[in-house]
């Protein structure tokens, strides 16, 4: 499975277009990280726990998108975009979407 954020893949032809695929994941952090975060909110600096958390959930979103693409028989997802939104206090949604295609 090829995942890329460009629209055409050099040297390869798109033989079939299968439409939009997407994957999302909503995560909340646990209390320990929350306390650390509120401390960091006083001192400033990177919130490593959050960075990891969001990275993990983004990977989760991508893997959901990939399994959706696999289910409809694609072998590549092109023009992938990411989007993040905070839904409630302490929870964020990570969203990945792209175009599923068949490359020769």
């Amino acid at each position: 499975m090829m995942i890329t954020n460009i629209e055409i893949v050099p040297g390869k032809q798109i033989t079939k277009h299968l439409g939009l695929v997407q994957g999302s994941s909503v995560r909340a952090k646990h209390v320990g990280r929350d306390i650390m975060a509120s401390l960091k909110n006083i001192f400033g600096g990177e919130l490593k726990g959050y960075t990891e958390l969001l990275q993990e959930s983004r990977e989760e979103a991508v893997s959901r998108m990939v399994s959706q693409a696999e289910a409809i028989g694609a072998n590549a997802v092109l023009n992938v975009r990411f989007s993040t939104s905070s839904i409630a206090a302490g929870a964020a949604e990570l969203f990945a979407y792209g175009t599923a295609v068949v490359l020769d």
Binding site: T4, I6, P10, N41, E46, L47, R58, V80, F82
Partner: peptide
Amino acid sequence: KHAPVSGQQHDSNLVMGSVVISIDY
């Protein structure tokens, strides 16, 4: 949008980097 070099001899892959950073009080 397009690669500045011809992509015939290259593979391509999605790369990303992220950071969460906080402002101080």
